[in-house]
Design a protein around this nucleic acid. Structure first.
Length: 590
RNA sequence: GGCCCCGUAGUUCAACGGAUAGAAUAAGAGUUUCCUAAACUUUAGAUACAGGUUCGAUUCCUGUCGGGGCUGCCA
């Protein structure tokens, strides 16, 4: 039982002697630095309910706790706040109890733990991943890891958009102008290789459109009648008809893209338990549409298209099947959702998708509810803001897209430049050094993107590259490395739980460390890795305070030295664990 | 037009409805015979505006202004 549980129980016990009325929820929080104490109970809600004076009530509760709860050694009341001072023994016992615990802070996955499906990444196979995908991947991966740490079973999945007109375009360009070239021959990753053909297609297509317009076509007509687009449409038609040659071509080109994606994922440090391909799922929703028609959830319009009326929820009507009988985007999403609940016993499904699709998911969930699936309530859209550039939104058409691989290269390069400038890592082999620069560069990138609340847009300025000093990933990594260095030097000292008197800095770290499980739970509830990022930063700040103001090793008292080393070791354990939840490597040295 | 999200130091980010709104960075001043100076200490600097709800509002509600998104038989 955690300390706040103990306190909560005691306070309720006390209040029961005062009243039988329903009690408001008790609110314990860490005491602010400016006041004496460790844990604070906010009295206002209680005062209101009991019609008591804050000072008097605080005194009564404080007195009761001091007398009856061993951990509480003192209290004071300021305004409407009851500040409790916790005994050194409590924190020392706590540290002694957790010091050997592997994976401290993580909740073991219980027998009854439900399965959460986390979908993220969702790439298109016609171009390489960009900065927006990086945010998506880091967010999805981190949330999945946090859920695991909080005791859930998790399946990580990606839906690969591998079919459609946009996939046909680069294939067509390659067929026309590629002369059988392979990515290996071109010397580029497969995804970039395909992306280049996509760009090439688009350029040629635009020339054709301009040409048609010059010959008197209207703009929209020119766009839809350009020969290249007609060819691409024809390719899509053949693909859908199952034409063997087209399918083979498609398979060949896509396979090199997957190789490229795989390298990017590995470098990003993300992974998936399964992948779904739209080429397998794009027809799934059609029978649902038929069922929906029967049930009267959908209706057929005079042109033959099928719609769902959502006006009762304040939304519009939504087309779920085109007039020519083919599916739209939401049709396959309906089908995929049903399929997932058929294949797995799911507790929850999390879709990690940008906030531009908020409306889409609102509609999707609503339609599934209307179709009568009780699990519709278990679907959740993990919506995040776009990554903007100073010039505005990234648009492939404008050509200002920040490529994922290039960005990672640049982070690595910057880490190396800064490391060299600071004279770091001189004792390492070249290979080891590069490995560390990679970890640090990626640490900077990941922390930069994850520390921001997912809902908010991120402004990414390539000119002022991501920081390595201050509130950054490398700052956390550096602290971890320093602790490791400290421990390497003095590995023999063991602390066996002997009593010492806690200095304020030591107590401060202990309080932070003790809060780690709560930080994980909070992050898991809110699906927000930023909580972990901020927790880690606070922990490191308080460790540095301790580190700077106490000479850990230079004390005569061997017990105190051993205790401080244990404190440092536990900080390293928690820090490494927190960083792992963000996908950040905690280096042994740097 | 309708719906949704966002407005906090010069800048980038914090703050389950709680105490004196925290950090980082940029600017100023310091700290290395001492466990890693990618660190630490210190000075100055902010809740877009107007109402409301209440013991208390950056947070909730209404309105105004500003930024973005969605409102496709695209994905």
């Amino acid at each position: 039982m955690s300390l706040s549980d103990v306190l909560c129980k005691a306070v309720i016990h006390f209040l029961r002697t005062q009243t039988q009325d329903e009690l408001p929820k008790l609110e314990f929080k860490p005491t602010q630095k400016a006041f004496a104490g460790d844990i604070t109970l906010v009295l206002f809600p209680l005062c209101k309910r009991l019609q008591a004076n804050p000072l008097a009530l605080g005194g009564e509760i404080g007195g009761f706790l001091k007398e009856r709860v061993a951990e509480v050694v003192d209290y004071n009341v300021v305004g409407g706040f009851l500040n409790l001072c916790i005994s050194d023994d409590y924190y020392l016992d706590w540290l002694h109890a957790v010091k050997g615990v592997k994976d401290f802070g993580r909740t073991a996955i219980g027998e009854s733990a439900g399965v959460t499906l986390v979908e993220y990444s969702s790439p298109n196979t016609n171009k390489p991943l960009h900065l927006g995908h990086i945010r998506n991947n880091l967010l999805g991966y981190s949330v999945a890891e946090i859920l695991k740490a909080a005791g859930h079973r998790v399946i990580k999945t990606q839906v690969i958009n591998d079919r459609g007109i946009h996939i046909c375009k680069p294939i067509l360009a390659w067929q026309k102008w590629g002369r059988g070239e392979t990515p290996a021959q071109a010397g580029v990753k497969g995804d970039h290789w395909v992306g280049a053909y996509y760009v090439r297609f688009d350029a040629a297509y635009r020339v054709q459109v301009a040409d048609l317009i010059a010959r008197g076509y209207g703009e929209s007509e020119a766009r839809s009648q350009a020969p290249l687009l007609r060819e691409a449409r024809e390719m899509l038609r053949k693909w859908e008809a199952g034409d063997a040659e087209t399918r083979a071509l498609w398979r060949e080109v896509n396979s090199s893209v997957y190789q490229g994606f795989s390298e990017t994922y590995t470098r990003l440090g993300v992974d998936f338990d399964e992948s779904q391909y739209e080429s397998d799922t794009y027809l799934l929703g059609k029978d649902l549409v038929a069922q929906g028609l029967e049930k009267g959830v959908f209706y057929k319009k005079s042109d033959g298209s099928v719609c769902c009326d959502l006006t009762d929820a304040g939304l519009d009507e939504k087309v779920v099947l085109r007039s020519d009988g083919t599916s739209v985007y939401i049709t396959q999403d309906l089908g995929t959702a049903v399929e997932r609940f058929k294949n797995h016993d799911l507790d929850r499904v999390i879709y990690t998708v940008g906030d531009e699709q908020d409306y889409h998911f609102k509609v999707l969930f609503l339609i599934l509810k209307k179709l009568g699936y009780p699990w519709a309530a278990k679907l959740r859209h993990l919506s995040y803001g776009m990554v903007d550039l100073p010039s505005g939104r990234m648009k492939s058409r404008v050509g200002n897209v920040v490529d994922a691989d290039e960005l990672m290269d640049e982070m690595h390069r910057t880490a190396r430049e800064k490391g060299v400038a600071l004279g770091k890592l001189q004792g390492c082999s070249d290979a080891e050094r590069e490995r560390l620069y990679e970890a640090i560069g990626m640490g900077a990138l990941k922390y930069h993107l994850l520390k921001v609340d997912p809902r908010k847009r991120i402004l990414f300025n390539p000119e002022e590259s991501i920081d390595f000093v201050g509130h950054t990933g490398p700052f956390l990594q550096y602290t971890h490395a320093r602790i490791q260095s400290l421990l390497r030097r003095t590995g023999k000292l063991k602390w066996q739980g002997e009593r010492v008197t806690l200095a304020p800095q030591e107590r401060d770290i202990l309080k932070h460390l003790e809060r780690f499980p709560q930080a994980i739970q909070l992050a898991a509830e809110q699906l927000n890795p930023a909580w972990i990022a901020h927790y880690s930063y606070d922990l490191v700040k308080s460790f540095n305070h301790f580190y700077q103001s106490t000479r850990i090793l230079n004390v005569g008292n061997a017990t105190l030295r051993a205790f401080r080393l244990q404190l440092a070791a536990q900080t390293a354990v928690v820090l490494a664990s927190a960083l792992r939840l963000l996908g950040i490597v905690a280096p042994e040295r740097m």
